[in-house]
Amino acid sequence: MKHACKRVSQLTSESFDRDLSLAEKLQLKLHFAMCGLCRNYHQSLQTMAGIFEQIREHDLKQDIQLPIEAKQRIQSVLEKEK
């Protein structure tokens, strides 16, 4: 199929952002079965997604706090508003 890998790389990316249709899933599956490079690409995007998931969890656990000056400023703004 012409432009196969180019088109498949776009679909591969989209599979991380939306539910693919049955036809699209089949298209990927068939292509992956015969194309090692696109299989590799898919695998590397899975690892990439895993990395960002880890970073998200990691950052959430980090104890980043609202700077104290900002807290005081907001505090006085809210006091005036009450």
Binding site: K2, A4, K6, R7, L37, C38, N40, Y41, S44, M48
Partner: peptide
């Protein structure tokens, strides 16, 4: 439409 470089699996 085929790959110019070879993506590796990570």
């Amino acid at each position: 439409g085929s790959w110019q470089h070879s993506p590796s699996a990570w």
